[in-house]
Amino acid sequence: MIEVKNLHKSFGEAEVLKGISTTFEKGKTNLIIGQSGSGKTVFLKCLLGLFNYEEGSISYDGEIFSQLTEDEKRNLRSKIGMVFQGSALFDSMTIAENVMFPLQMFTKQSKSEMQDRVDFVLKRVNLDNAHYKMPSEASGGMQKRVAIARAIVNNPKYLFCDEPNSGLDPKTAIVIDNLIQEITDEYQITTVINSHDMNSVMEIGEKIVFLKDGLKAWEGSNETIFKTDNEAVTNFVYSSNLFKKVRKMYLEENK
């Protein structure tokens, strides 16, 4: 479980996060949503320790991140899997080498054991025959799946995804969403996803945190988001006619 208490982050005069408190639970897909500029990416980067913050605390299963030494922070990070918005695959390595990289760095497995694990994980993300391709030869969807494979290959306790669906067609986006949810359930990972995609919110948002102007404006789940009367949430989530209709149908069905 990840617990965030009163998180403040500024860039010069501009305060981007204004005291966010929330928890992200184990075995659940936790979504952070909000408009562009609401502080989602900054929040995610603070969670990952890529940004320092002025006030507040973030604890990973009781360990307060800011109180850890640099070496302890690195050890904690080795338990984190991250899927970047642009996949961030190492372009000098093949797909199999990218996936094997965390194993080479953090385990003492033999080459054949690592190879078996890579084969297993690539099969898990439906990329059985892509081992020797370079990232530049893979499509956007394939790159995202490789990034997921790399993130989960070393059995992480925490999985972070920054806009995992951006730039993907709706069908591939659903495949990626389902894959993340299956992996979260299967390995009981604490998953935190930063997303703009309303399909993801409805499909896999077991916990949803809505940010507005650097503050937590609402939190709930993909069930309660239909019922909420929070104006900021409804303006954001149901801005399209399609989602307005979906909400209306849901509320009529669940009267």
Binding site: L48, G49, L50, K73, R74, N75, L76, R77, S78, I80, M82, F84, Q85, G86, A88, L89, F90, D91, F101, P102, M105, F106, F160
Partner: peptide
Amino acid sequence: VTEQIDALEVMGIN
């Protein structure tokens, strides 16, 4: 630029 260094840092690599 392509966040590969962030990826290394997040993994706990110097």
